[in-house]
Design a protein around this nucleic acid. Structure first.
Lengths: 333, 333
DNA sequence: TGCCGTACTGAAACCGTTGTCAGAGAACGA
DNA sequence: TCGTTCTCTGACAACGGTTTCAGTACGGCA
């Protein structure tokens, strides 16, 4: 590994001059320096630059689970938006654990220029520490209670929940069940609230035993669906509040030989790549995925730009959309 | 941001002593130092440590596409294996582009302690530069032509291809088609070779027009399947060499109202989360996913351990397994 | 009493880069 | 010709740690 001094020696100038040349300043011996750089294959030490400048050109990204296709798409969006801007992504999974998230952020703060986070709970305090440390922070997918002072890219989860309910109601369902996510998370809480709200407005009540709370993982969708089916008067329609729980629910229905939508209509939140191929094709509330990552990264990079640090928070809220396919139908008589 | 000197001043000792305490050496004023550390919330500067030690505690991970569930799972495995070992993951997508991969690696080399790579082509030269730079490298999923001198975690792709062919042959198919991946990649080449090999051994020939080469993306699976269907004597069975192309193929079959497996049997490579839920459930060649990430990271971290750098390359090859479900059946008369 | 070994300590150098500073020439106008 | 400006330069000091080196203080022992 050659250093800037090696280059300087070879070009017959001082290290300072090499540095200047590399940063684009006019320098008399530009060609000689460039030649030396090329011959030695010199690349500046990132560590030394960071130490000197206090900037690392890395963005910390913390998501609950990278194997969730939604987050994979979001991260891909982030990566493509940071590409060409000279920023790299430091990736970590929180596994939906607030503690793990705390650790990760505490570690990261000191080696990233900014953080994009999908917080494990809305009560999380760590993001405040991140802000206190002067590290710009953008929320994606999930918000904080009182998060208005942070940048964020979200979707209208409440409206998404309402759309799901409205769709089931429009088909004539009244024995309706919902499997929601953790109520301490934005999508967990808001989707359920919107869903319940729309039901209430239509004068339909959700039986407490049909108002289930999962954890956004496939297994909880599976187990909770089994429990619903064991009810002596099962629901005719089901709303599952994210993609993984939807898959779990479908597996349970499959295993229990429940026909969809004849015996049970099901509507999920977040489309699956194979959504149209399922039997029947899956009805879902859909939302932009890659876009959210792109927007979040852009917001953050803007924030990193000089003189933009203190501008008021920007909050982007995207719309959800009903994709009606075959898994929802009229309730059985 | 407090520095080690702030801590030293507060504890009434020198910076050297604080450093010693933090690195676990016996020190007279341990309590006072610890108190100062806690009060100030001191954390060592990663940049300074890197500059001094030459180690960054970061692992560069370059995969073709993080939204491919296989790679998402692999990355998750890596992340969990690096957790607790004090290593972080610098993630990048190569988008199956060799040029992009070159850039990424050239940048990364100087800021990571090791690299895990799924190379875009087997002819790639960049990995050699990485090695020359003294940065340990582990291949995952894909190998290099002449890659025997590198650590790697692979699966037996050739055998997987043979299993697929054997399965279709055992059902009595002879008009068989294959949609393979890029022939410059290990999985693209080896799966096809194994597949063709087994057909040849059974005396079955693959019509050139049925021997298609895609690019591991959904769109190519879709388009190539459409072209197969437009043949005036279409195949009765199809092998798609990765998950995304399988999804593309299924969408084409769906759009063209081809019934599976009656009109066409299909067998994929790599299971889908929704594989069992498809209509009919998808027959695939399956392989460990998260495990590959875990193994690759372990291999790399071992390599980073002292005195292990020069040991001979370790190459792990995992087995594939046929998951017979409903998408393959007897050929139509 | 003196001597030796042990346990700990701070000063200083170093990692590689960048920014400051003062100075050296060259170009320019008077 | 002599200032004065302008452009470019190298020496040097940081940035925040870790490590080496040369101590200092103390206990044990003869």
């Amino acid at each position: 590994m050659s250093t800037i001094h090696d280059v300087a020696a070879r070009a017959g100038v001082s290290a300072a001059t090499v540095s200047r040349h590399l940063r684009g300043q006019r320098v008399r011996s530009a060609e000689a320096i460039q030649a030396a750089v090329d011959e030695l294959g010199y690349r500046p030490s990132v560590a030394a630059q960071s130490l000197k400048s206090g900037r690392t050109h890395m963005i910390g990204v913390v998501v609950p689970d990278i194997t969730n296709p939604y987050f994979a798409a979001v991260v891909k969006g982030m990566e493509s938006a940071s590409r060409g801007q000279g920023y790299r992504i430091l990736l970590a999974n929180s596994d939906e654990s607030s503690d793990r998230e705390d650790e990760l952020l505490a570690d990261m703060i000191h080696q990233v220029d900014g953080v994009i986070l999908a917080p494990a709970t809305e009560q999380d305090q760590t993001p405040l520490h991140v802000r206190d440390a002067g590290v710009p922070l953008v929320f994606v997918d999930r918000d904080l209670a009182g998060g208005e002072h942070f940048d964020a890219v979200l979707v209208n989860n409440r409206e998404g929940g309402r759309q799901a309910a409205a769709h089931l109601l429009s088909l004539g369902h009244t024995r309706i069940a919902a499997i929601s996510g953790q109520q301490v998370t934005t999508p967990g809480r808001a989707r359920r609230e919107g869903f319940l709200e729309a039901l209430a407005e239509a004068g339909v009540e959700l039986h407490p035993e049909f108002d289930l709370i999962g954890d956004f993982r496939e297994e909880s969708g599976y187990q909770l669906t089994l429990s619903l089916l064991s009810s002596n008067q099962p629901p005719t329609a089901l709303f599952t509040a994210n993609n993984l729980m939807t898959v779990g629910a479908l597996k349970a229905l499959h295993d229990m030989r429940v026909t969809v939508p004849d015996q049970l209509s099901i509507i999920g939140f977040d489309d699956l790549d194979t959504g149209p191929l399922l039997n029947p094709p899956l009805t879902v509330i859909d939302r932009p995925m890659v876009d959210q990552g792109v927007l979040a990264m852009r917001l953050l990079l803007q924030r990193l730009g000089q003189s933009d640090r203190d501008r008021s928070p920007r909050r982007v809220v995207l719309d959800t959309k009903l994709l009606q396919r075959g898994s929802t139908g009229l309730p059985r008589q």
